[in-house]
C-alpha cells in the first residue's frame, strides 16, 4: 500500500500545514482567539488580502508581475467610499473603466513586449495620483450594503472563513477548471505552443489582466466594507503581501504554476503570522525581520520537499 502524492498535492499541503501550525500556536498563546468572534477578528482583514493575492496570481500565471496592485486597490477603495453610497452607477462605471485600463495595460505589455515590472510600477504612480485626486483627505463612507455584507453574522462559521472559502473555490474554478484558466496557465508555461495550438496569446493575456483588475476592485471594495471609509494610501502594503501570498501558497514566478486555493491559504498565513508575532510581543524593530523569517522557513520547507520529489 503506497499512497501516491503528486507534486501538486505537496504544493498545496505545505501552505495548509503552515497555516495549521500557526493557528495552533496562536490558539495556545491566546485562547480567546478560539471563538467565533476571535476567528473573525483574526481573519477578516485577510479577506481583501486574499482577493488581492488572487489578482496578483492571475498576473504571475502569465509570467508577469504586478507592482501596482497596492495603489490600484487603494484607488478602488477610494472610488467605492466616495461614489458608491450616493451615485452607485457612476462608481460602477469608474471601476469598470479601471478594469478596462487594466486589460489595456496587459495588451500594451504583450504587444510592445515590455517588462511588466516597469509598466506596472509606472502605473502604480498613476493609480496613486488618481486616488489622491478622488479623495484628497481621508474620508468617504462605505455603502450600507457593503458594510453589512462584510460584517455579516454567518451561522456557526465566521464570515471571514466563509468568504475565504468562497474566494478560493471561485478562483479554483476559474483558473484550474475553466478553458480560459487552462489557457492562462498555458501562456505562462509555454506561450509558443499555446499560440501554435491556434490560441491568441494577446487575448488570453488581456483576459488575465482584466480578471486581475476585477479581483483587485473586489479587494478594494471588501477593504472599505471593513474599514468603513478610505484613505488614498490604505492598501500600499498589498503589493508585497500579494506577491508573498502567491509564493507562500505554492505558486512560482514562472511557468504558469499557480494554486488559487494555495494563494488564499498563503494570504491567511501571512495575516496570521502578523498576529502571532504580535501575541508573542516581539519588538516592532524585529517584526519585519521575523515576518521574513516565517516566509523563509515555509519556502525552505517547500524546497526540501520538492528536492525529495526529484
Amino acid at each position: 500500500m503506497k499512497i501516491k502524492i503528486s507534486a501538486d498535492h505537496i504544493r498545496l499541503l505545505i501552505p495548509l500545514v503552515s497555516l495549521a501550525v500557526l493557528l495552533v500556536a496562536v490558539f495556545w498563546l491566546q485562547p480567546r482567539a478560539m471563538s467565533y468572534l476571535g476567528l473573525n477578528l483574526l481573519f477578516n482583514l485577510a479577506v481583501p488580502i486574499a482577493l488581492a493575492t488572487i489578482a496578483q496570481m492571475l498576473v504571475i500565471a502569465v509570467n508577469d508581475l504586478d507592482l501596482s496592485i497596492g495603489t490600484f486597490v487603494s484607488f478602488a477603495a477610494c472610488v467605492t467610499a466616495v461614489y458608491m453610497p450616493s451615485t452607485p452607477l457612476l462608481g460602477i462605471f469608474i471601476l469598470a473603466v479601471a478594469i478596462a485600463a487594466y486589460a489595456f495595460m496587459g495588451m500594451i505589455i504583450h504587444l510592445r513586449d515590455l517588462p511588466s515590472i516597469v509598466v506596472t510600477l509606472g502605473m502604480s504612480f498613476v493609480w496613486g495620483g488618481l486616488a489622491v485626486l478622488i479623495l484628497p483627505s481621508p474620508g468617504g463612507q462605505a455603502p450600507v450594503w457593503l458594510r453589512s455584507m462584510m460584517t455579516a453574522q454567518t451561522p456557526i462559521i465566521p464570515f471571514a472563513i466563509v468568504a475565504s472559502l468562497v474566494i478560493g473555490i471561485v478562483a479554483h474554478l476559474i483558473v484550474m477548471k475553466s478553458t480560459l484558466g487552462v489557457a492562462i496557465r498555458g501562456v505562462g508555461g509555454n506561450a509558443r505552443s499555446v499560440s501554435r495550438a491556434g490560441w491568441s496569446v494577446l487575448r488570453i493575456k488581456v483576459a488575465a489582466y482584466a480578471l486581475s483588475g476585477f479581483f483587485s476592485v473586489l479587494a478594494g471594495m471588501a477593504l472599505v466594507g471593513l474599514t468603513t471609509s478610505a484613505d488614498a494610501n490604505i492598501a500600499l502594503r498589498y503589493t508585497l503581501l500579494s506577491i508573498a501570498g502567491v509564493i507562500l501558497g505554492g505558486g512560482e514566478f514562472v511557468g504558469g504554476r499557480v494554486s488559487p486555493i494555495g494563494a488564499v491559504v498563503g494570504a491567511l498565513t501571512l495575516t496570521l503570522a502578523g498576529s502571532f508575532l504580535s501575541f508573542l510581543r516581539i519588538s516592532p524593530d524585529w517584526q519585519i525581520g521575523a515576518q521574513g523569517a516565517v516566509l523563509i522557513v515555509v519556502l525552505g520547507l517547500r524546497l526540501i520537499f520538492s528536492r525529495r520529489e526529484a
Binding site: Q30, R32, L223, L226, L236, R237, G274, S275, S278, F279
Partner: peptide, 20 residues
C-alpha cells in the same frame, strides 16, 4: 508599534488587542 506605518497593519494590530 506597527512595523510599516500602514493603516491596514494597524487595524490588524487593534483587532489583535481586542483578542488580547
Amino acid at each position: 508599534t506597527t512595523a510599516e506605518n500602514q493603516a491596514t497593519e494597524q487595524a490588524a494590530q487593534i483587532q489583535n488587542m481586542i483578542l488580547q
